[in-house]
Amino acid sequence: MSATAASNDVMIRFRGAGVTYPNGVVGLQDVSLDIRQGEFVVIVGSSGAGKSTFLRTINGLTPLSTGTVEVSGQPVPRRQGRDLRQLRARIGMVFQDFRLVRRVSVLNNVLIGRVARVAGWRSVLNLWPRADVELAFSALERVGIVDKAYTRAGELSGGQQQRVGIARALAQEPEVILADEPVASLDPVTCHQVMEDLLRINRELGITTLVNLHFLDLARRYGQRIIGLQQGRLVFDGAGRDVTDADFQRIYGRRPEEDDFLQEAST
């Protein structure tokens, strides 16, 4: 089991981690596991299982109520402040709804990934150092949309916008990428392209990558390791190719249905 990996290459370590929201809803409960450096992990679970909560505890967007999360040995700070911002700078995040600033250019969106590394006045005046612009461009090159650098983000298609989202995360030169259902708003073909992008980046740059997915076939295909959540609890942790329909039934608490697959139209 990977939960007992040698501690020297552990990137993220959960120990008894739990989240109870202010309204009393339990989002995550007693999760303990290790994620090694360079792993590509897919988290599955039905809607409301706690996938987003799980990811967001890693960069402190959702604070833990109990237990600890460590990123390369350093506990995630519970309070807002410089420590937390410095940790977040090392963790890129990709969102289901892209979260781009639609009215500004693709390049400026990607430069947001540099916000923690440049002087405040430079980002305020939109005067980014040449080296950071260079980084933004190479991030765009890596996801193949550098030709859109000066287009307004809002004018791109969904798949292109998600690539900008990935480029923004890449521009952070992150050690970890967290992708929260990155393909849920995309059509099947684009969906695979974006997943391939994430996998390629993981292989080429060795960035530890965690992806929340809803579709079982996508999870099986891309997840080298699959983590199953149900009602905030860890119910599965194993290699992607070993997952059986019985495992999925356990994760979902029911028999998999047609909706749980993305119908492999493109392959």
Binding site: L61, L87, I112, V115
Partner: peptide, 14 residues
């Protein structure tokens, strides 16, 4: 989009 900036390590002001 504001949350995206904060997730990248930006301050509230940024």
């Amino acid at each position: 989009a504001m949350e995206a900036v904060e997730a990248a390590g930006g301050s509230r002001l940024a």
